[in-house]
Design a protein around this nucleic acid. Structure first.
Lengths: 122, 122
DNA sequence: TATATACTTTACTAAATGGTTAATTAACCA
DNA sequence: TGGTTAATTAACCATTTAGTAAAGTATATA
C-alpha cells in the first residue's frame, strides 16, 4: 500500500491526525502547541509520530525557527483525495436517488408502515 | 481507532478496495465477479477480507441469492467522509490562495530567478 | 558554561493488517 | 447421492501501526 491516494486516506484515518489538520487549518504552529490538546491522552513522541505520518503523506510541511519546528498545511494531496471522492460521489448519489425512486415505488401503497427493517410484505 | 470516519477513511486507504468500490458503482455483482480482476495478484479469501473491511465500514452490503452473495454500494458513510473533507477543502484552498498571493508579492521583483529552493537573498 | 526548552530518535511492545493455504459450508445440478 | 460452484472460515505468518519510556540533539538563555 504505497500509492499516494492510499497514503493520504491512511493519514486521514485517525482522529488525532484529523484534529491536528483541523488545528493547522487555523494557521502555522509549533509541535508543542499542536500537541497540547492531546497530552492527557498520549505522549509527545506519539504526537511527533502522527505529525510524521502527515508529513510523509505530504499533508503538512515542517520548517525550522530556533528550537521550534513550525508546521503548516499542504493541501495538494488532500485535493487529490477529494477529487477521487467527488468522482464517485455523483454516481453514488445517483444510485441513492435510484434507490429512493425504487423505494417510493415499492412503498407508495404502504403509507402507514413505520419500521424500516423487518417489514412484512403485503 | 474505532470512530466511523476513521473506519471509512481506513477502508478507502487501499487500491484494491477502491477498485472494488469503483466496480460496484456500475452496479451490484457477486464476489467471484468482483474478485476476477485481482486473482492474478491475490487469492479469493484475500478479496473476501477486503469486502469484509468495506462491509464493516458500511460502504457495501451483501445479500443472498442461491450460492451467490451479491454486493451493492451503500454511499452513506462515504458522504460523511466527503462532508468532512469539504469542510476543510474551502479553508485549504483559501490558504493556498493566500500562499499564492504571498509568493507573488515576494517574487514580483525576482522574475529571472529559477530555483525554488536555496535562492540567495539580494 | 550550565541549564532549560523544544523536539526527535531509539528500542521496545501489543495489536491490527494483509496475505497465504487448506478445510468447510451452502446451494445447485446430474 | 455425489459432484461442482460460490464463498467463507480457520490457522498461520510477516509487516505495519500506535503507543510507551528513556536517551539524545539542537537552540536559546542565565
Amino acid at each position: 500500500m504505497s500509492d499516494p491516494l492510499s497514503i493520504t486516506f491512511s493519514a486521514l484515518a485517525d482522529p488525532t491526525r484529523r484534529a491536528l489538520l483541523a488545528r493547522l487549518s487555523e494557521g502555522e504552529t509549533s509541535v508543542t502547541e499542536l500537541a497540547a490538546p492531546f497530552l492527557k491522552e498520549m505522549s509527545l513522541p506519539a504526537v511527533t509520530k502522527h505529525l510524521k505520518v502527515l508529513e510523509k503523506a505530504g499533508l503538512i510541511t515542517k520548517s525550522r525557527a530556533a528550537q521550534w519546528r513550525p508546521c503548516r498545511l499542504n493541501p495538494e494531496p488532500f485535493k487529490d483525495a477529494v477529487d477521487w471522492m467527488e468522482q464517485y460521489r455523483i454516481l453514488w448519489e445517483e444510485s441513492l436517488d435510484r434507490l429512493g425512486v425504487y423505494l417510493k415505488t415499492v412503498t407508495k401503497d404502504q403509507k402507514n408502515k413505520k419500521g424500516k427493517k423487518h417489514g412484512r410484505k403485503k
